[in-house]
Design a protein around this nucleic acid. Structure first.
Lengths: 194, 194
DNA sequence: TTTCGCTATATCAGTTCGATATATGTCGGA
DNA sequence: TCCGACATATATCGAACTGATATAGCGAAA
């Protein structure tokens, strides 16, 4: 899935600026399983405009740069839906510096191992909290749930969000149950080898 | 974590060729939480050689291209360990086309939704199986567990592998419990709206 | 028997990231 | 009250990385 397709998908929920699209990938609906940076979103929107898949209206703002509000054209909508039907989804990829580093736990001070695990747990705690539907209506927080015109959360989005939460909780549970064991094992390991 | 650092880490377990390093990221020890392609590994190894962090021995092979077996220098080892101590690990990132597509479940035929979920489950089933320690000694399979000189699995690697398995299992459990509910909800949803 | 996949290195075009530039309003703390 | 930090908003660019392709011989399956 290239950024152009991701942008089309982001605009399926209604009009948005480039900046708002980035927020969907940073904090919002898609943030837990897709990434796109401004440096790729803006060129993608330009290209999509050239191809007639999106249009934009320039809103002048006092004392601020103009806002370009993008919207799908009917061809853009059709193209996106066709892509959904035709694309064979790429392999999932998970990238974690912390897990990579933990692989070398034997080679580093135990305090660092513990700090890394705690950091990992803290990040998942936060993420689980962000996905939580209880938090979804609070002002200021970006919604994790895509909603239709009536404001009802969409079943597909709820399923994906629930899955994300289940993964977070499993991670936290595993850490609660295995962190101490690992630290003890490492202490043993280091006692035996100088 | 750039590819250079990842290569140093891969060589912490002993000597290897570029091709073998890629396999560690494709099938082996690091495959579930880091990615590196040949197109970045070879240039990285060249750069590391220039910087004196690795050396290589060229093994001539009959009727095959020469094999370059790389090895950490003591400075390479020191550099990697220093990096572990000093690096603030980047945010984890998870990227999934399938979950992104499922977000638009309302817009596509129910059969496609079901196929995507089944595909997602199948991939996690396979992954869980690959991580399974039972499978670890079987010839032909790439080991998921880093091992020390005596062939004993390293505690850090076991912890990370266990965590990966716990995440897979949570995913599979969630799908077992929620797939049918989603499909029913979607049928409802579509019945109400034409 | 030919076609596919494995070992093995290497290169390159295209994509994407991350940082930076620009301009300004707002809010909290010293 | 002023300063710094942060948010809005677009745009660009070098550096990094992916994915495909080239080369080349072997073994196994179909």
């Amino acid at each position: 899935m290239d950024v152009r397709t991701l942008c089309l998908g982001a605009l399926m929920g209604g009009e948005a600026t480039g900046y708002e699209i980035r927020k969907m990938f940073e904090d919002g609906t898609f943030s837990h399983f897709q990434i796109a940076s401004l440096g790729s979103i803006y060129p993608a929107l330009t290209k999509l405009t050239q191809d007639g898949l999106v249009t934009f209206v320039e809103h002048e703002q006092e004392n601020r740069p103009d806002k370009k509000v993008y919207q799908l054209t009917s061809e853009g909508r059709r193209t996106f839906l066709r892509t959904l039907l035709q694309t064979r989804p790429a392999e999932d990829r998970y990238r974690s510096d912390i897990l990579f580093m933990l692989t070398f736990a034997e080679e580093m001070p135990i305090e660092l191992t513990e700090a890394l695990i705690d950091e990992f747990a803290a990040r998942h705690e936060l993420m689980s909290h962000q996905i939580d539907p209880e938090n979804d209506d609070k002002p200021g927080t970006m919604s994790t749930y895509g909603r239709d015109e009536n404001g009802a959360p969409k079943p597909g989005c709820c399923f994906v969000a629930g899955l994300g939460q289940a993964m977070c909780e499993a991670t936290l549970k595993f850490i609660r149950e295995n962190k101490q064991g690992l630290l003890d094992e490492l202490r043993d390991f280091k006692a035996r080898k100088p």
